[in-house]
Structure formats: structure tokens, C-alpha cells
């Protein structure tokens, strides 16, 4: 790699390479499960009734959509250096491609082995694709797809989040939630 290497070629060399592997700050725990269930008034007995949990899932499991909750860093922790941003690759791409704006157009979560209280999960980010330059109503830039894989302490895959982003330079007035 040289200082004059094409940034797109450099970035595309990282496609399929796991990056930013991190282990959660704490084991999966029922307190957050209850708080989340409470926040959406979810009375699914699978998460509240031990007999039903024993019968259907051999013990309590976490609501599948809580997958990313277990990786959001504490707001503060003693002596901590700055943690990686969630989806650090997204911000890397914006910076290295010189694209100041970005939106996330959609995301897909695929759920694999159930997550259980006590699990310690690990995540890694994997760039899947970077498009050629495109122009949309927002501006000119590139689409990219980033997967975030989650595994448990037994290295079993528990889920994958796949994000499609569009990094761009504005073409006049534009809108959209920046990410």
C-alpha cells in the first residue's frame, strides 16, 4: 500500500475481512430484558414465565431484537479510551472516501441461535460491498453494505445485522437523517 494508492481499491481490499472485533461490556442479563419488554409493553410469556421458557426454549432467552443492545458501550467507564463507534466501518468509509454526508437506507437483522442470560457476546464488522460512484437526489457518492456479526461464548452465530449506507456529497438542498 502506498500513499498514492487509490482509496477505493484500498477499501475494496477489505471486503470480507472481519474488523473491529469487540466483546460486550457485560453478560446478557435479565434486567435489561425486563426494561426493554416494559418499554414496549411486551407480555410474551416466553420472557416472563419460567415454566413456558423451560418448555419452549429450555430456559429464558432474550428477545431477539435486543441483539445490538448488548454492545452499546457504557456512557462512561473509568479509565476508558474512546470506544469504537457502532458501525465504525461506515465512518471509516465516509472519511477515507471524502464523503461528508451519509444515510442508512435500510437494515436487515437475521436471528440465529437464541441469546440467553449469562451469554457473553462478541461482535465483528465486515464490509461486504462498495459500489461504483452513483448520483441520487441527495448527491453523488457510493453505496456500501456492512454486516455486523454476533457470536456467543461458544463461537455460535447468534445474529447478523446488515446495513446499506449511502455516503455522498450534497447536490444542493437535501434531506434525510444523517448517520
Amino acid at each position: 500500500m502506498t500513499a498514492t494508492a487509490d482509496p477505493v481499491t484500498e477499501i475494496r481490499s477489505l471486503i470480507g475481512v472481519p474488523q473491529y472485533e469487540e466483546t460486550g461490556d457485560f453478560p446478557v442479563e435479565r434486567g435489561y430484558i425486563w426494561t426493554t419488554l416494559s418499554s414496549v409493553e411486551n407480555g410474551n410469556p416466553l420472557f416472563w414465565d419460567e415454566d413456558i421458557a423451560d418448555a419452549l426454549t429450555a430456559g429464558f432467552v432474550a428477545p431477539p431484537t435486543m441483539l445490538s443492545v448488548w454492545f452499546r458501550p457504557h456512557h462512561w467507564a473509568p479509565g476508558r479510551s474512546a470506544p469504537h463507534l457502532p458501525l465504525q466501518i461506515h465512518f471509516d468509509l465516509k472519511e477515507r472516501l471524502g464523503l461528508p454526508e451519509a444515510v442508512m437506507s435500510d437494515n436487515t437483522i437475521t436471528f440465529h441461535e437464541p441469546v440467553r442470560p449469562g451469554d457473553v457476546l462478541t461482535t465483528r464488522q465486515i464490509l461486504r460491498s462498495v459500489s461504483d460512484e452513483k448520483t441520487t437526489k441527495l448527491g453523488t457518492g457510493r453505496f456500501w453494505v456492512i454486516d455486523v456479526e454476533y457470536t456467543n461464548q461458544d463461537d455460535a452465530l447468534v445474529g447478523v445485522e446488515s446495513y446499506t449506507g449511502f455516503g455522498y456529497r450534497r447536490a444542493g438542498a437535501s434531506s434525510g437523517a444523517s448517520a
Partner: peptide
């Protein structure tokens, strides 16, 4: 996402198991 999960499993009951969601 948690609201969508609750909406879906209110309908399926506890046997319902999410496979994939695209938002």
C-alpha cells in the same frame, strides 16, 4: 425493532420465532 417484535409475537404467541426483519 422491539415494538415490531411485540406486534408480531402478540399474534403468534410464544412459539413464534423471529427469523429475519428488514427495516
Amino acid at each position: 425493532a422491539a415494538w415490531f417484535e411485540r406486534f408480531l409475537t402478540d399474534w403468534t404467541g410464544p412459539h413464534g420465532r423471529l427469523g429475519r426483519m428488514t427495516f
